[in-house]
């Protein structure tokens, strides 16, 4: 097996090679099993200190990282700052310097400004994991999406994936586009033109204006959450109309030429971008995504800590305590 390493940080999938992305997905495989044990803990990162630095509200991602860290036996501290980027007292550069002075090993950062993870990574020696920076990237979300697609369809190469919804404001969309393209998938985006970033097709994706066309084309739909404030900001006239024109419904999926795999990064707005019948339906893999999220994050933390992919199985070591 290769001796690839991830480097110091995980900032985005744009900056990773296909081999690096595969390395993370492959490394996640042996870690899946840890969460299935009665005692869900291995000593892999014992003695490592990790700070979860969340400048933006997050439940799912923060809990997923925290479980990944704890199941690897790392010592973790959660720092949550609800203050807005502009209003917060301490600057990010001062936060970075203080963290560095505490000699921590890794920082997991969620921040409302695009580029904040790189900003931090450029200023500290510790590893930085981007847990979502503004509208830029959310690499571990895309990695868990990739792993879930691979688990479900047995491959990524050649699979047609359409990302649906608010592409303009979505870091999940950007990370998915890079990851999917690098692993050979065909990628499309679909949503109202008001929520489509300028020049998106130059990244190598198709653009569907209508969800019906996307459903005809795709093998997989990754349905993004519609932030409710997009309506007040004037990007869409109403949630009702969004649901009627762009919602992924059972009726629409019934007209598809094949069964579509349904992903959603959560949290869902049932009845807006996705119908309950779809979210709870037989082809939804939304909860597998959540489960895979922990394994993917364990793999990322392990690799950034210098772990070798080919030794991941062994690195899980003896279990802490008896099974």
């Amino acid at each position: 097996m290769s001796q690839l390493t991830l480097g110091k940080d995980l900032l985005g999938l744009e900056y990773l090679s296909p081999d690096h992305i595969k390395l993370i997905l492959d490394t996640a495989e042996p870690f899946k099993e840890v969460s299935e044990r009665a005692i869900k803990k291995v000593p892999t990162l014992r003695g490592k200190t990790i700070v979860n630095l969340f400048f933006e509200a997050s439940t799912r991602t923060r809990i997923s990282f925290e479980f990944a860290e704890k199941r690897l036996s790392a010592d973790t501290v959660n720092v949550a700052s609800s203050a807005s980027a502009v209003e917060k007292g301490e600057t990010l550069v001062d936060t970075a310097r203080n963290l560095e002075a505490m000699r921590i090993d890794m920082v997991v950062i969620r921040h409302p400004s695009s580029g904040a993870a790189k900003f931090l990574a450029d200023r500290i020696n510790s590893s930085v994991v981007n847990a979502g920076d503004g509208k830029h990237e959310h690499p571990t979300q895309a990695l868990l999406d990739l792993l879930t697609i691979r688990d479900t369809l047995g491959r990524i190469e050649g699979v047609k994936v359409c990302i649906c919804g608010d592409i303009l404001h979505s870091r999940v969309a950007r990370s998915n586009i890079w990851g999917l393209l690098k692993l050979g998938a065909e990628v499309a985006v679909c949503g109202p033109q008001t929520l489509m970033p300028l020049g998106i097709e130059q990244l190598g994706v198709r653009v569907f204006r209508r969800i019906e066309e996307a459903i005809q084309w795709a093998d997989v739909l990754n349905v993004l959450r519609l932030q409710l404030e997009r309506m007040s900001a004037g990007f869409i006239p109403s949630l009702r109309e969004y649901s009627r024109v762009f919602g992924v419904s059972v009726e629409r999926l019934e007209r598809a030429p094949r069964d579509l795999v349904i992903l959603h990064p959560g949290p869902m707005n049932r009845g807006v971008e996705i119908d309950s019948g779809v979210a709870d339906g037989p082809h939804s893999v939304i909860l597998q995504q959540v489960t895979n999220g922990i394994a993917v994050r364990m793999a990322v933390l392990y690799l950034l800590a210098g772990g070798r992919a080919d030794l991941a199985e062994a690195a899980k070591g003896g279990q802490e305590g008896a099974e």
Binding site: K135, R171, G199, L203
Partner: peptide, 11 residues
């Protein structure tokens, strides 16, 4: 506003 802002996720 262009391909770079799209890539960077900046307004």
């Amino acid at each position: 506003e262009g391909i770079v802002s799209t890539r960077l996720g900046l307004k």
